[in-house]
Design a protein around this nucleic acid. Structure first.
Lengths: 120, 120
DNA sequence: CTACATACCTTGACAATCTGGGTAACCAGG
DNA sequence: CCTGGTTACCCAGATTGTCAAGGTATGTAG
């Protein structure tokens, strides 16, 4: 049986909204300190109360992408539970990128809200 | 010379942010009354102060999509400037869909903001 | 020795947007 | 006239990012 039943499904947002924001979310998550992939996904789900669910098939490609662009770097280590895990750390360039993307998102979100909340 | 010079380029948001929001933006634009495609694009650019630029290669496919789903319906007519133009009108189902998508976007945007603005 | 949770990863398909074209009609200037 | 700019429509192709759905392996609990 699936690990997520239909009843528990507290209306999650449409999948493809993430387009273009996933990078920023991951970078932000890593700004608290190094984390491994699985932990990133869990953290995002928790702190957004399940509004944002990151599929692993999206997350790992995103991590490789970010690494290739030198925004994060990886290092093998041990998770708190004693399993091997690849820890990702934000680079200096990554921190700058995060700043840029976060600002950009604010502008975008403000613009969309201005439209969607406009009246008569 | 192009109608938009580089200098005037007041930092526009990354293209792919639109993913998943374009439909809602178009539906909302039509909620004021029927409009033709070109006018929709211009209106969105104006009211968002150029933060949202809708490419026509995105807009028209979106309009067909929305029409096929019975959220809007089209009718040929004459623009204010005397040219033939296809006017799109929001259907009842489209209005419901707009409500749904707007709510959804609010939830999504709130979640992303919660993450991106979180501190230490 | 089974089941579950953790943790990684890949493949293939898809949906939506963008780029960069093109058509046509109207209008103004020269 | 005829050229160029604007309005207004449309399409083909490529790209991109995400998703769905799988699979591997290890540690822990029962």
């Amino acid at each position: 049986m699936p690990r997520q039943s239909e009843q528990t499904n507290r209306s999650r947002t449409r999948p493809d909204h993430l387009h273009g924001t996933l990078d920023a979310l991951v970078l932000k998550t890593l700004s608290w300190g190094p984390r491994h992939g699985y932990a990133i996904a869990r953290w995002l789900e928790q702190t957004t109360d399940d509004a944002l669910r990151i599929e692993e098939g999206s997350l790992y490609p995103a991590l490789y992408r970010l690494e290739k662009r030198d925004w994060i770097e990886a290092e093998w280590g041990m998770s708190e539970l004693g399993r091997r895990a690849k820890f990702y750390r934000l680079t200096r360039r990554g921190r700058a990128e995060l700043q840029r993307e976060a600002d950009e998102w604010q502008r975008f979100a403000a613009a969309v809200s201005r439209v969607l909340l406009a009246e008569a």
